[in-house]
């Protein structure tokens, strides 16, 4: 494993810690999109089917279980926790998931490595992960007040994707020497979606102002 990949995974873990910190200590999920969090549950469940079918390193098993477990936990908090669920920005979180799920599934039916359940769902999970942040970005745009932890959470998610891109560049030259269209294109699109957010996040940080996205 190269340094970019390791840093990417650690940043992804940090994202989850930041979000759980907000939920558990502040008892708030204000500004967090339940739609995006539910999409992540679907992404992890469909991608990690191989937990049961092929050999994984201990690192992979632990990380996969952490991602599945925490994503379900976060959705549980947002939907059912007595206090937390009342802070959910329900009226602003209006993006319809199935507008994302359905096209990604159809795309996976046509674009995959092998026409098997595991391969189609693997492709589906990559396509869905690429666009899963959209409901969150829309919610941020509608929020008057973006608190620091929410801004940091989305920023770190973007950083994790940038590190994965660097990891692929490294792996292409050092290990693989082959083109991997499905993860690369979806990963690139996923990262590009953060460009606008990055711009405003860094600007607000430089000017020491509160983060606000133009509507």
């Amino acid at each position: 494993m190269n340094l970019f990949r390791l840093l990417g995974d650690m940043t992804h873990l940090l994202c989850i810690v930041v979000l759980l910190l907000k939920i558990r200590t502040r008892k708030s999920c204000a500004g967090i999109s339940l739609k995006t969090q539910e999409l992540y549950v679907i992404v992890f469940l469909t991608r990690y089917l191989d937990l049961f079918t092929m050999y994984n390193s201990l690192y992979q098993i632990v990380m996969k279980l952490v991602f599945v477990g925490t994503s379900i936990g976060i959705v549980w908090y947002m939907r059912y926790h007595k206090v937390v669920k009342q802070t959910y920005s329900k009226n602003e979180d209006t993006f319809r998931h199935y507008f994302l799920i359905l096209p990604c599934f159809v795309l996976a039916l046509f674009v995959h490595l092998d026409f098997t359940v595991v391969e189609v769902l693997w492709s589906f999970s990559l396509y869905l992960e690429a666009v899963a942040i959209l409901p969150q970005l829309v919610l941020l745009q509608r929020s008057r007040n973006i608190d620091t932890l929410t801004g940091d959470y989305v920023f770190l998610l973007g950083v994790y994707r940038v590190l994965y891109l660097l990891n692929w560049v490294y792996r292409f030259f050092m290990e693989i020497h082959q083109i991997r269209w499905i993860p690369w294109v979806s990963g690139f699109i996923q990262t590009a979606l953060y460009a606008d957010f990055f711009y405003y996040y860094i600007k607000s940080w430089k000017n020491r102002e509160k983060l606000k996205l133009p509507a």
Binding site: M54, S57, W168, R180
Partner: peptide, 10 residues
Amino acid sequence: SSTSDLKDEL
């Protein structure tokens, strides 16, 4: 192989 398909990634 699974590695070349980047299946070893998360």
